[in-house]
């Protein structure tokens, strides 16, 4: 390929275009498949972009820099999770205590079992520490792993991966577990699959989405407080 064309292909403009186009392709597939659980736009976009930057031989760091414009909006979107919650506040009545107890127990379970399973199967300590906070939303997980001594950029991959798993199979599993209260369904998904799980729930039902967002926020708080404490026992 001519050098100037290759330069264009590796430019921030094209990388940004591929990101948005990959996401758009994912939305198109989701519509075409009638909202099939596997057709999560984030998954399609990661596959498209991951393949493209590998073929074009673009450093991930350069890609990340070029798409800062997209990643930036995760912050305001997280703030915006207050909106569905506000519209669902009357549903909080009689649910605050079950909610808080469930989220604390869930965070302890998720952190401790991730470390113990990884250890039992021979993962080294850095990897165990990187897996510990993966249920929390990406920025929290990165900060926690940083402080703990794991591999910070890798935990972003784990959290988004487990978020996608939640978006794909979460609702079906909740049916299997006979969790039928929409508040509890949203809560469970937000607690283990953060924003990506919340985005699936928002498409299913506003109550489920609102409680997933709330669970994501509270789990972020709980995880950042609990992991340093649990680390004293675990490591």
């Amino acid at each position: 390929m001519r050098d100037d064309l290759l330069d264009l292909a590796r430019s921030p403009l094209v990388l940004l275009f591929l990101t948005v186009a990959g996401y758009q392709a994912g939305r198109w597939i989701r519509t075409r498949t009638g909202g099939h659980a596997l057709a999560q736009p984030v998954l399609v976009a990661i596959a498209v972009v991951g393949t493209a930057i590998t073929v074009l031989d673009v450093d991930y760091a350069d890609y990340r820099g070029a798409t800062e414009l997209v990643a930036f909006w995760l912050g305001p979107a997280t703030v915006a999770l207050a909106v569905p919650l506000h519209r669902q506040t009357d549903r909080l009545k009689g649910f605050v205590v079950p909610m808080l107890v469930a989220l604390v127990l869930g965070a302890v379970t998720s952190i401790v079992t991730a470390v113990l399973i990884a250890r039992a199967l021979g993962a080294d300590e850095a990897l165990q520490k990187t897996l510990a906070p993966k249920a929390a939303t990406t920025p929290v997980a990165i900060a926690v792993v940083d402080a703990l001594g794991g591999i910070a950029p890798l935990v972003a991959v784990f959290t988004i991966g487990i978020g996608i798993v939640g978006a794909v199979i979460g609702p079906a599993l909740l049916n299997l577990l006979h969790i039928r209260d929409r508040r509890a369904r949203g809560l469970a998904m937000g607690a283990v699959s953060h924003g990506v799980g919340a985005s699936r729930m928002l498409r299913e039902d506003e109550t489920e989405g609102a409680f997933a967002g709330l669970a994501m926020g509270l789990t972020a708080l709980i995880t950042s407080l609990l992991v340093p404490l649990l680390a004293l026992v675990l490591f």
Binding site: L81, P153, L202
Partner: peptide, 21 residues
């Protein structure tokens, strides 16, 4: 807020692509 939340998944793509590393 609703407009941003409709496309929440898009904002996770740049970090998710880190898998290639």
């Amino acid at each position: 807020g609703t407009a941003l939340l409709d496309h929440l998944q898009l904002f996770f793509v740049p970090a998710g692509v880190g898998i290639v590393v």
